[in-house]
Simulated scan of single mutants.
Amino acid sequence: MPIHDWTRVEAGVFHDFHHAWIEEIKRILNARVLPPDYYAMAEQVTGGFGPDVLTLQGAAPDDEPDGSNGSNGSNGSNGSWSPLGPNPGAGGLALAEPKLAPSAETDMEFYRRKAASVTVRHVSDDRVVAIVEVVSPGNKHSQMAIEQFVRKAAFLLDQKIHLMILDLLPPGPRDPNGIHALIWEAIDGRPLPKQERPLTLASYETDETIRAFVVPAAVGDRLTDMPLFLLPRGCVEVPLEATYQAAFDVFPRRWKPRLEG
């Protein structure tokens, strides 16, 4: 199914589809994509970012119910949450290298004080390892909104939380080269050249450096499956085309002709 032109409908109409799509992404991640010791949940809050889908690592079998593992809180750190990803050897994971080649990689240490004013608060005892975010009109409606989105995305990457950003909305005056370009400039300090195709699918792998896997897209294109990183160099493929189509299949008929016309 080709990507639709979502500028043909009001923000509230896209909002309805947005929720249906993230629910399909969550469902397929849990049903057949994620390894058994990971799970996905929709619409929790991580430091005010408001992620659409969280990917978390479950507690080890011998952990206490409160996630303390018999010590003073998560990871034995007086109840504080550690945003770092799981031990690469844990759980016998069978994760793959991404099929896509990275579009860019930082060549300098990430400036860790850039977002010091943002506080990430843990909403459960399980560790967040990745976030999927579908960009909405609300993320672009003001300069403050777009700066907040970019700042929090950069902060989460600095905290070793992998991201996938799906931007099916065309660039505007506040993001003339798309939100990915703003995120990359925030973490690398260098602007990206303008891309010819206006929409963007981006996955970010974060470790000692940050690598971006970017697929530019346009209205009428089919969606490319994208890597969602759970560990550095270890990812699962998220079937974006299949989940998009499943969400559109149950989209209200009232609005389909305007999008398909």
Rank of each mutant, 00 (worst) to 15 (best):
S103P: 06
Y111P: 04
E109H: 13
K256Q: 15
F213S: 03
A217E: 15
P227V: 01
N87R: 09
M144T: 11
Y39S: 04
D225L: 00
Y244F: 15
F49N: 03
D52L: 08
P36S: 09
A90I: 00
P51T: 00
E241T: 08
M226A: 01
G79A: 04
A247G: 12
Y111V: 00
W6L: 05
N78A: 11
A11R: 10
G79V: 04
I165W: 07
P98T: 03
S77D: 12
D16M: 01
T119G: 03
Q195C: 01
E105V: 11
V135S: 07
L223R: 00
G138P: 14
D221H: 09
V134S: 07
T55G: 10
M108W: 07
D188L: 00
Q148G: 04
D249P: 07
S77Q: 12
H122R: 12
G178Y: 15
D158N: 15
S203Y: 06
P98Y: 05
A116M: 08
L166Y: 08
V219N: 08
E24K: 11
K256V: 14
H18L: 00
V33H: 10
D175G: 00
D249C: 02
H122D: 15
G76R: 12
A59E: 15
E185R: 07
V150I: 01
W184R: 02
L199R: 12
R32H: 10
E147Y: 07
G91L: 07
S142H: 11
T55E: 07
A101Q: 10
V236G: 05
L84H: 14
V53R: 04
R197S: 14
F229N: 02
F229D: 05
P252N: 08
F229Q: 02
E10N: 15
A247I: 06
V33I: 14
L168W: 06
Q44C: 11
S136I: 10
L156F: 10
